[in-house]
Write a protein that binds this DNA or RNA. Structure first.
Lengths: 358, 358
DNA sequence: CGCCAGCACTCATCCCGGAGGAGCGCCAAT
DNA sequence: ATTGGCGCTCCTCCGGGATGAGTGCTGGCG
């Protein structure tokens, strides 16, 4: 399971340096500290670490190491005489090299699989989002599959004079529909004819292709028919592209209970505003779909202030071997990564296979 | 503009009593107090009221009246030496008989009208919800229209062997679709034939009617055709009823900023959980659609604890003179009713006319 | 050179207790 | 009936002492 942020090259270089700089003792202590802090959210002092770490060291010695870790920016103290808490960089190092994830049981996987509803792409996606939020008790988020820009079947339906309903079955079997205003009033038989032409000749092609070909063959058709076709193509194109990418979020409520976040009412509001602003979130998640495997964004690494004290754990999912979307979890930086990571990982895989079957 | 809760008769009786008991001075003072409290959220003292009320009374006299109002349960003091704040009953009386709503400007109405997107019932409903939350800065909520259980057009589409897509255009012009598993594999022409029969004979009827008539006329059809029909009818019925009532909420985030609510993290979480539990909310809102005009639920009047410090302002909307749903706003009990009420009222009316046009 | 016990120091938190102020209730005077 | 005045209550806002956690540093020990 690989996990990384943006800027791979520089990251790897840095990692090499850091692994050199941090001797085993420092690493062990950092690991213990992060784990402890994740577990109870209190700054961790030298005394506590001395008991936890397993190393047989006195608090005083540990203080020396902690001072080093602080100098290197892995940990920080909220005030003079408190313990230390991990910085974003500390979390990063922890997640990249110290973390040991424990895979889920077969039982848990089966449970998870059972909760994915499969009767419909939309339902599948929302249930995946639900499952993620239920299991992690954070916010679950899924980017809906990119649709291939083509259609399996097209149909016109007359609603009123000069008002048509365009019904479009996408290659994936989902149905889109759209109302078109036309200049001329078409008879039902004309509509059937137009639909037939499109279905017989162009089913499965992308709209761009069709437009090009229709334009070439247009002269053979009556002019009004051509108009209808182009209008239909435009509408279809728009319908597909408009509904093509969206992000489904569930369990935002869970974040209200997290005291790390809900202490700052303003930040919390910013965060929820971000959730309403789908597009921004979409960009972040799209990032993830270019890499493979689980990715983790810690704190502001994504470049969004509202995510200041949050981490985003994502994994892309695929249909027929092609990445089509991203699933993920948004929670506080202080989250149980070793649990969340496999959950996200498995969910992505289950979603992939559920989508591929159909 | 009428505004009332449940239990009309008893309410009217009580109102008569109360109006008798409260002399004009008490009413004026109560009105001033509530308005002031709504405006700045601080308990209102006698000195402040003496200046505000317009009556030329000393604080001492006002204290007498306030004591009476407190005895009658209209106001309460959070602690010994604080001012008074309205109780739920106080708000109730204020809203029922003291409140003077100022209707919106033509300009505002036009603006509002412009923001309602009309290309689609679903979009119309969500934009109405958005508009409500934007204008009031609280949570906007709309119950989607009850659909009449009939169809304008029906269509079968073969997805695979024994797997059909049923496309259904409702009387309102919305499109539903549903996948049916069949026992037998039908040819495209059979599907067209079945669709034709349904369209020509039964368009516009309710599914129950159709089922009855189909059953009677079934013998004339080939058996497999009959099977297809009944399957289609069942699926259509289900599709319509399933998607028939839902509640769209937007702008929940706004409630995070309200200090009346966000002081109590737990209550806030309960509230947001209520939002996710659509059904409970639906019941409350359905209540409203049985009355006519704007209705107001103050505090726990609705019988839901999460709404403890909230008020719900609702109004039913109609299509062709028949009530089909409800719009509303959920905000803190301490809200500017004189502004929210006309907003909800107008939105309901605009929504009605937008839906009726189509 | 690494380790560690001990000590001084720094803060955060908690818990008073007093001062200030807002506002009420009551009462006696008008 | 209205009102000025007085005493009282209780919230809020400090400031200070006590407590405790945890650090940094130093000097001694193996």
């Amino acid at each position: 399971m690989s996990a990384g942020g943006a800027g791979f090259l520089c990251k790897i270089v840095r990692m090499a340096n850091e692994t050199q700089q941090l001797n085993e003792r420092a690493q062990l202590l950092l690991k213990a500290l992060v784990e402890r802090y994740i577990a109870d959210g209190q700054p961790v002092g030298s005394r506590a670490l001395s008991k936890l770490s397993g190393l047989d060291l006195s608090p005083a010695s540990i203080r020396n190491v902690m001072a080093d870790l602080e100098d290197m920016g892995f940990i920080a103290s909220p005030h003079t005489s408190a313990g230390r808490i991990p910085t974003a960089r500390g979390y990063r190092f922890f997640v990249d090299t110290l973390l040991t994830v424990k895979p889920l049981d077969r039982i848990e996987i089966n449970q998870l699989e059972g909760q994915l509803q499969v009767d419909n792409t939309q339902k599948l996606v929302t249930s995946a989002s639900h499952v993620l939020s239920e299991l992690t008790r954070f916010a679950g988020v899924v980017v809906t599959p990119r649709r291939s820009a083509g259609f399996r079947h097209i149909e016109f339906l007359k609603l009123a004079e000069k008002r048509l309903l365009l019904i479009l079955v996408t290659a994936e079997g989902d149905v889109q529909n759209r109302i078109i205003q036309t200049e001329k009033s078409y008879s039902p038989s004309e509509l059937v004819e137009a639909a037939n032409i499109l279905n017989q000749n162009y089913a499965g092609c992308s709209f761009e292709d069709i437009r090009r070909r229709v334009q070439a063959e247009l002269k053979q058709l009556r002019e009004d028919m051509g108009q209808l076709m182009t209008a239909a193509l435009a509408a279809g194109d728009q319908a597909v592209s408009e509904s093509s990418e969206d992000v489904v979020i569930s369990g935002e409520v869970n974040l209200l209970g997290i005291d790390d976040l809900s202490s700052n009412m303003n930040k919390l509001r910013d965060l929820f505003n971000l959730f309403e602003h789908r597009t921004t979130l979409l960009q972040l998640l799209d990032h993830s779909s270019r890499a493979q495997g689980v990715q983790i964004f810690i704190g502001g690494e994504a470049g969004l202030q509202p995510l200041d004290e949050c981490s985003v754990v994502t994994a892309p999912y695929e249909v027929d071997g092609k990445v089509v979307g991203t699933v993920g979890v948004i929670g506080p930086t202080r989250m149980a990564y070793e649990r969340v990571i496999p959950i996200v990982d498995i969910t992505a895989k289950l979603l992939s296979s559920a989508l591929t079957q159909r």
